[in-house]
Nucleic acid binder design. Structure first.
Length: 799
RNA sequence: GCGGAGGUGGUGGAAUGGCAGACACGCAGGUCUCAGAAGCCUGUGCCGCAAGGUGUGAGGGUUCAACUCCCUCCCUCCGCACCA
């Protein structure tokens, strides 16, 4: 009645493991396929998101295997990170023990899903033979000036008690716990990702097989903008203030300039001026404001006059210098020229503080006689006015001309600014990779020698979750001899951000046990790039950007000869319940494990692929899972009723399915592939199938329901694993039907259908159609004006 | 504001110039059964008894033919954002 999924799934999982069916080995005579899914954080339980991600990957991997590729499909664990510390505090265990237990539990759950991983390649980032290479990479970066220490205001999460990278601040809050992020002055380690900004941007063009939106997000994040740095000279001084603008065509309309409150010049500017007190007060107020408040778009722009003036270099006009909260120190030069007539923010600010306005761009179709008539800034294109020798020019042209003119006169410089900042990687946490640096009172900052790697994490530390680096409290860890002078020195006690760990793991999988370097160059040459990468959209910026950065760094080290790590990228949609993301707090979590218990892993895999295309969100529907299970039972019953010969019609249906499924699988259209399996099943239910037809069907279904199909394969009498079988090929002759059904339209509307021989002559066809009784009344006695024939599809008669 | 993805039955979705709604879920009816479950069969966009009409966010256009291409607009989701 029902197939025994529990027995079957356990049986095949054991067999696969025992026979090392999924072991991957480099073989230069075979075409490789490296399929990778984003590795999980070992929380101890897999969730539906994992199930979806890994099922998509598993089907692709098994399909490629059947197609004859040498497939590598590895799995590992992104095992460092804060939850381990929290759990350890709560359960009074060590993070290392908690993490290893979670990894074990997750392995078990992943294996229950029947995923085809080469477990011999498994890596965990918290093992010292992995993080040793984090340290190695860090040292290489340090040697090349790409890792450096800097004191600056950093993002600080008061709840996690640690720093955050810019990328980890979401809407002013911590990406993990959403606590409002504070600013704090600290000396921290940074990676100079900005050195790669042009390449990171430029090479996005190579990523033809990435989703548009991911490319857009990366592009956005790097944030290149081109314009001109203009040098405003301070009145009665030789000092200049560079301001950045993308609208140099509006320079003649600049009526004041604005500095960020943190701008280093401000204190000098106001010294002994009557405005000093007010300005200092304003600076204090802004410093107190969190960035969240300050950048909220609906907040009124506030600012104060500094009492100083600057000279606009294009017309020697004296303009007041203000400071305002809407100018940010971290972007551009931290100073802007304000053109209230052509920038809406400047417009509002000028109105508020009664600053002068001057129109310098007129729309093509009307003239603006006075700035007073403007009710908002005119930000569009037009013709230059009040712009000296540039009057009358089209503003786009003026942009280039003015920029060149300013460069020639030495009053400006064509300049490009980026939004991308260097990557802050120091974390005041215990459970992470120790940064391999030593501070010596005599020699300064000294890198740990390569031969002393790894700098091992002590087995435990007094981490309470309350402030400071826990490693700083471990005397045996901190106190060290200086590698240079052998004097007493201190270790760095911060650890690396965990995104460091995941920025190169795809390379480690190529040679996970290699002892001389992060990866074996020869193995990487064979396996890389990753042909298909699959993961959540939440990693569209951080993880993918960092991985691209590391790859370019390895290229510069001449360890690899490619520049991008991931050829194709698929970002799978989320799994929703009642229209919402599954989460503990909403209490709407569906546990994969209980679904496996009730319906089996194969049914779960089938449902999750059938319910929606991979990139779209998927609404969880247990009835749908029941349906998947019902379908598998239907297929099972075919095997119990095989005939000795198959109908020609069934054979045709099979070959149609082979054709459809082959393309659908390679395009990740699993939902429609499954629909054609169902259609084929419906045909077989009417007409029956023989062993040959059913065997091909089972092979095609096996990537989706591997245990189920292995079992059927065995029942059919085959000895070897179904995954050694060749993917079926369709016979084009069987796709050609003798007779075809043509649709007949009158004036584009469906009026009749007709079955005719495939190669019927057009004349004959016309004759046949015009005699059709069903159609005659639609002709209304008139004769056809035109007859359009689309061979083997339709006829449209225009009356 | 900028950028990206979308809008199709009661639901998930299919069709990328050629029969709109494949395939499923749900629902209705039938069959089997003492009965139920399971299975199997049939029907199912909407209006209409029917003939037929109508229908892919709205409006316009191109075409013999438009969910699909073009124009105008509306809405939803996602990313970035006082970025100069």
């Amino acid at each position: 009645m029902h197939y025994d999924f529990k027995k079957i799934e356990e049986k095949w999982q054991k067999k696969w493991a025992k026979a090392h069916v999924f072991r991957a080995q480099a073989d230069s005579t075979r075409k490789k396929y490296y399929l990778l899914e984003m590795f999980p954080y070992p929380s101890g339980k897999i969730h539906m998101g994992h199930v979806r991600n890994y099922t998509i990957g598993d089907v692709a991997s098994r399909f490629k295997t059947l197609e004859g590729y040498n497939v590598m499909h590895p799995m590992g664990f992104d095992a460092f990170g804060q939850p381990a510390e929290n759990a350890a505090i709560k359960n009074k265990t060590k993070p290392v023990d908690w993490t290893h237990k979670c990894i074990k539990d997750m392995e078990t759950e992943l294996k229950k899903m029947g995923f085809s991983y080469d477990w011999e390649r498994e890596v965990s980032t918290c093992d010292s033979d992995y993080y040793k290479w984090n340290q190695w990479i860090f040292l290489k970066m340090f040697e090349r000036g790409l890792a450096y220490r800097k004191a600056s205001g950093v993002n600080w999460c008061p709840s996690c008690q640690t720093t955050l990278a810019n990328e980890e601040v979401i809407e002013g809050g911590c990406w993990r716990c959403h606590t409002k992020v504070e600013q704090k002055d600290l000396v921290q380690w940074y990676l100079k990702i900005t050195e790669y900004k042009e390449r990171l941007l430029e090479d996005l063009n190579q990523l033809k097989n990435w989703p548009q939106r991911v490319l857009a997000m990366q592009n956005n994040w790097i944030g290149k903008s081109s314009g001109v740095d203009i040098y405003f000279r301070l009145e009665n001084s030789d000092r200049t203030i560079p301001v950045f603008t993308t609208r140099v065509d509006t320079i003649f309309g600049a009526t004041y300039i604005v500095l960020a409150p943190e701008h280093p010049l401000v204190l000098d500017l106001v010294k002994d001026k009557p405005q000093e007190k007010e300005v200092l007060q304003f600076m204090k107020k802004v410093a107190r404001e969190s960035k969240l408040v300050r950048t909220a778009s609906d907040v009124k722009k506030e600012g104060v006059f500094t009492g100083s003036f600057a000279i606009n270099p294009v017309n020697n006009e004296k303009v007041p210098i203000w400071i305002a909260d809407y100018v940010l120190m971290e972007y551009g030069t931290g100073a802007i020229m304000a053109v209230p007539t052509h920038d809406q923010r400047d417009f509002l600010f000028a109105k508020e503080h009664k600053l002068p306005l001057r129109v310098v761009i007129e729309p093509k179709d009307k003239s603006i006689s006075s700035a007073a008539e403007l009710s908002e800034a005119y930000e569009g294109d037009g013709r230059q006015v009040n712009s000296g020798e540039f009057n009358g020019l089209d503003n786009q042209e003026a942009k280039t001309r003015i920029a060149q003119w300013m460069e020639a006169k030495g009053i400006g410089k064509i300049q490009t600014h980026f939004r991308l900042r260097d990557w802050l990687i120091s974390r005041q946490r215990y459970w992470g990779t120790p940064i391999p640096m030593i501070y010596c009172p005599a020699c300064g900052i000294v890198p740990v020698p390569y031969k002393d790697l790894p700098v091992e994490l002590p087995a435990s530390a007094p981490f309470t979750g309350e402030g400071g680096s826990p490693l700083g409290k471990v005397k045996k860890f901190v106190e060290v001899k200086c590698p240079k002078c052998k004097g007493q020195a201190r270790r760095e006690t911060d650890t690396m951000a965990t995104f460091f760990d995941s920025s190169w793991y795809f390379l480690r999988f190529c040679s996970p046990k290699f002892n001389d370097a992060p990866f074996d160059v020869k193995e990487a040459k064979y396996w890389m790039m990753v042909d298909q990468y699959i993961g959540g959209i939440e990693h569209a910026i951080l993880h993918l950007l960092y991985s691209r950065f590391f790859t370019k760094f390895f290229q510069d080290l001449k360890m690899i000869d490619f520049t991008e790590p991931f050829d194709k990228l698929l970002t799978q949609g989320m799994v929703l319940k009642d229209g919402e993301v599954m989460s503990k707090s909403k209490g709407n979590i569906v546990d994969p494990d209980s679904m496996i218990k009730n319906y089996g892993a194969d049914a779960l895999r089938l449902f999750i692929l059938f319910a929606a295309p991979p990139e779209t969100e998927l609404e969880w529907e247990e009835r749908g899972l029941e349906g998947a299970y019902k379908f598998l039972n239907r297929v099972w019953r075919i095997q119990e009723n095989l005939k000795s010969n198959a109908d020609l019609q069934v054979l045709r249906a099979l070959h149609r399915t082979i054709k459809k499924v082959s393309t659908d699988f390679s395009e990740f259209k699993f939902n429609t592939a499954i629909a054609s399996f169902m259609e084929l099943t419906n045909v077989i239910y009417q007409l029956g199938a023989d062993k040959k037809v059913f065997s091909d069907f089972v092979i095609m279904l096996s990537p989706i329901a591997p245990h189920f199909c292995e079992e059927l394969w065995e029942i059919l009498g085959y000895n070897e694993s179904i995954f050694k079988a060749p993917w079926p090929k369709f016979n084009p002759e069987l796709l050609i039907e003798e007779n075809v059904e043509l649709v007949i339209q009158v004036n584009g509307k469906l009026r009749s259908k007709i079955e005719v021989p495939r190669n019927i002559a057009e004349d004959k066809l016309k004759e046949l159609v015009l005699k059709d009784e069903k159609l005659i009344s639609w002709f209304e006695g008139k004769s056809p004006k035109k007859i359009i024939i689309v061979p083997q599809k339709l006829i449209n008669i225009v009356i």
